[in-house]
Amino acid sequence: MRILTATCAAVLMTAVSAAADEVAPDDVTFGEYGAVETSLTGTEGDAENGAMVMKTKSMGNCISCHQVSALSDAPFHGEIGPMLDGAGDRWSEAELRGIVSNAKNTFPESMMPAYYKSSGFIRPGDGFTGKAGEEPLPPLLSAQQIEDVVAFLMTQKEE
């Protein structure tokens, strides 16, 4: 993959620079309490797209576990995790990036899945096929989708 990208560098200048700035799942640095200080992409998150990622079943599907008033246009919010209204007051951007990337660094044993993790699983599958998957798996969300979700969460301030 790397080699291929390098070969095409002249043509795909922009793609290469985006990929170069992107932090791979295994390279993310988590602070002592699970925060991730630096952006995973260097590109500012798009809150609107983050909202879409959170609602969509095949993407974040965050509302399967969390209630989020601002996303109430999508039906059926779960009750597994805390309501996310006001998450932008309770947490800093770095903390939210850490929680969404791998919540287990912030909340040990959390039920919340790690959205930016590609290896170290028990019986990793190939998506929802039930068949074996091979690590590294593509992370549940891309680096930019994580940034978008974080940007959305930062808009969640209680009035």
Binding site: S64, I80, R123
Partner: peptide, 21 residues
């Protein structure tokens, strides 16, 4: 198990009675 790292207990011991979506 799996990429979601969930056990039977996560859903059926710790969260029965709750809605998941």
């Amino acid at each position: 198990t799996g990429q979601l790292e969930l056990s039977c207990a996560n859903c059926h011991e710790n969260n029965y009675g709750n809605m998941i979506r």
